[in-house]
């Protein structure tokens, strides 16, 4: 497995139109999207994006359609050319790479999964999965061996001779995932990879991805418009609106401390009990005695904590790290507040 590598996106701007470079300065100086459109007929795609993605983490980029999220992910492997800004990966600026280096970078450092699968319909599952290696010039026997391993790993054993048209959407996206994993690239780009799938299948595929991630430890950039999906799989989440990042942080940050009304409105329908962790809402150790069975893991969810308090008829729980240290305590009221979101945990 390749070592995970990080991604630094710095001051990235994208303007669509006949002469984008001419308007970057105006946008930097604060011209709005509507103004740019009305006065110069250019569309502002992305404005001053700064995201630092840690090696081996899952970074979710979330936004509604038109927010620029698919544009943003396409900058990381430069399927779209930025108007200004830098993307630094392993000390190299992807934006400045000459074509030859860019091709090598795409072959060895990144792999991508697409919303509408984008499989080659005239090729079998096996040949689709092996595509990345084929392009690299890996001998047939070796690329088929690697491809078979990942086809089995994503649960498609026995379908390697099928054509994409013979598979369901969920299975086609497993092929898309296998194709990306076969490359063994340290960066995995997933552009609304699960948005076209039914909810149950989407949940399955999220599980597949999370399980795989424990094994392969890639740096994953995951685009979605589905907040539940974002909260479930993202180590960090960046919220995009009209081409700007309006909030970045962990799932806990976004649910507990929404940056503005737009985000607050977004998170208000989330099942907070299943998202919030005990660690995010616990308070200082009280010193009060608590029975030993009333300990709870900081990673446990608030819903579990409430369940436990109800069963044990307790007014608070002691938050205990796996090594036995006491980290804090969780009063019933704090848990209920966090759960309902009424007062908002402070």
């Amino acid at each position: 497995m390749a070592d995970p590598i990080g991604i630094e996106i710095r001051n990235l701007y994208k303007i669509f139109g006949p002469n984008p470079a001419a308007h970057v300065e105006a946008v930097r100086a604060g011209m709005t999207k509507a103004e740019l459109q009305a006065r110069h007929g250019h569309v502002l795609g992305l404005r001053d994006i700064n995201i630092s993605i840690a090696p081996g983490s899952i970074q979710v980029i979330m936004g509604l359609s038109g927010s620029g999220k698919s544009t943003l992910i396409r900058h990381i492997n430069r399927l779209i050319e930025p108007t200004a800004g830098e993307i630094i990966i392993e000390g190299q600026n992807v934006v400045a790479m000459p074509p030859e280096a860019l091709r090598a970078f795409r072959r060895h450092k990144t792999a991508m999964v697409f919303q509408k699968f984008a499989l080659l319909p005239h090729r079998t599952v096996l040949d689709n999965a092996a595509y990345g290696l084929e392009v690299q010039g890996v001998p047939e026997a070796e690329r088929y061996r690697t491809a078979m391993r990942w086809i089995e790993r994503v649960g498609l054993k026995g379908f390697e001779k099928s054509y994409p048209s013979q598979l369901s959407g969920g299975m086609q996206q497993r092929v898309g995932l296998a194709r990306a994993l076969v490359n063994d690239a340290p960066i995995l780009l997933m552009d609304e990879a699960y948005s076209a799938l039914d909810p149950l299948i989407r949940y399955d595929m999220q599980t597949v991805l999370l399980d795989l991630q424990k094994e392969v430890r890639k740096t994953i950039v995951f685009i979605t418009h589905d907040l539940d999906e974002a909260l479930r799989i993202g180590d960090r989440i960046a919220l995009l609106r009209d081409g700007c990042v309006i909030q970045q942080g962990s799932a806990q940050d976004i649910v507990l401390r929404p940056a503005d009304d737009y985000v607050a409105n977004f998170v208000q329908h989330v099942d907070r009990g299943k998202v919030l962790k005990v660690a995010s809402i616990m308070v200082e150790p009280s010193g009060a005695e608590a029975p030993p069975e009333a300990a709870i893991d900081p990673e446990a969810r608030v819903a579990d904590a409430l369940q436990k308090m109800a069963v044990l008829r307790l007014q608070s729980l002691r938050v205990e790290a796996p090594d036995g240290r006491t980290l804090g305590h969780l009063p019933f009221q704090a848990a209920i507040d966090a759960y309902t979101g009424q007062q908002g945990a402070r």
Binding site: N77, A118, V135
Partner: peptide, 22 residues
């Protein structure tokens, strides 16, 4: 399909490979 061509690009196909394979 544009997305299929994007996929070919994303996996680092050269212009010739894209033509012949996709």
């Amino acid at each position: 399909d544009r997305e299929v061509l994007e996929a070919a690009d994303a996996f680092g196909s050269s212009a010739w490979q894209k033509l012949i394979k996709a």
